Simulated scan of single mutants.
Amino acid sequence: MEARDLRVRLGGTPVLDGVDLTVTAGEWVAAIGPNGAGKSTLLRAVGGLLPATGTLDLFGTPIARLGRRDRARLVATVVQSPVVPAGMAVADYVLLGRTPYIAPLGRESAADLAVVGDVLDRLDLTGFAHRQLSTLSGGERQRVLLARALAQHAPLLLLDEPTSALDIGHQQEVLELVDELRSDRGLTVLATMHDLSVAGEYADRLLMLADGRAVADGTPAEVLTEENLARYYRARVRVLAGEHGPLVVPVRDRSVPGDPDHREERPLRVVEHGEPAVRQVGRSD
């Protein structure tokens, strides 16, 4: 995927402002940045879900030349808040991922059903196959959304906060599965992630956005610096060396109220006759 001077305006407001990005085959790139930086907009533009200006090529072809079916065979997208048909069962929803391979007015093949079964099994969803999506928890639903995308067998996977509703165990399972598919199928991944330590652990490269612009692009060690996080996130952190990437650890401001070393002494107020006998105390009490 290659984007040059990518721009998106929503309601007349620039949300993405001249972003350049190249993602090579088999690479995992994570877009990070504070809230409102333009991360989700970038993914939606790359997936063809939002109109954008600039140039955007997918596997060497301008996205404007790709029909919906052709684009769906190349790109699978997991958005944060998809529209889910009411009353749909999990297996039927995941089967929608095979739509680009089923002829109009045709029916799914045994091979399509086998793909769905395999994906449900790998995401620990086989027991939910006949459940309606509306009855699932947030984490279960998130895995179903990913399952549909994986069933597309598209070489480019776009993930918008893929583990935001998952517990830590399922987070690891999902991310390890995506990484395994990257090795097995040469899958290319572009994801937005809020957890910076997780982004640094799994991504080959990070693109940091702020106010719709790219402000840093490089390896996790190059991008996840205390200076960058202080400047663009306004965060006090320590960046530690991890086994696979930097670990970002928040550091408390020792001068704020609530800190054990902070003492905000307040004078004792004399209780007048007739007032409730409530003793006003300072923090040290």
Results as ranks from 00 to 15, higher is better:
residue 3 A to Y: 00
residue 7 R to T: 15
residue 10 L to Q: 15
residue 15 V to Y: 08
residue 17 D to N: 09
residue 24 T to L: 05
residue 25 A to K: 13
residue 27 E to L: 02
residue 27 E to R: 02
residue 31 A to K: 01
residue 35 N to E: 11
residue 41 T to Q: 06
residue 47 G to V: 00
residue 60 G to W: 06
residue 62 P to S: 08
residue 65 R to G: 06
residue 66 L to S: 07
residue 66 L to M: 14
residue 67 G to K: 08
residue 70 D to N: 12
residue 72 A to M: 12
residue 74 L to Q: 13
residue 80 Q to K: 11
residue 80 Q to Y: 09
residue 81 S to M: 07
residue 82 P to H: 12
residue 85 P to E: 10
residue 86 A to G: 09
residue 90 V to T: 08
residue 93 Y to R: 03
residue 93 Y to K: 03
residue 98 R to H: 10
residue 103 A to T: 14
residue 115 V to T: 14
residue 116 V to I: 11
residue 123 L to M: 11
residue 126 T to A: 14
residue 126 T to W: 04
residue 128 F to D: 02
residue 134 S to E: 15
residue 135 T to E: 14
residue 139 G to E: 05
residue 142 Q to V: 08
residue 142 Q to P: 07
residue 145 L to N: 10
residue 149 A to E: 05
residue 154 A to S: 13
residue 156 L to N: 00
residue 157 L to A: 05
residue 161 E to R: 05
residue 170 H to A: 04
residue 174 V to Q: 03
residue 175 L to I: 05
residue 189 V to H: 01
residue 194 H to D: 09
residue 206 L to I: 06
residue 209 L to C: 08
residue 213 R to Q: 08
residue 218 G to E: 01
residue 223 V to Y: 01
residue 225 T to K: 04
residue 233 Y to P: 05
residue 236 R to H: 14
residue 239 V to K: 03
residue 246 P to R: 09
residue 255 S to N: 12
residue 264 E to F: 11
residue 277 A to I: 02
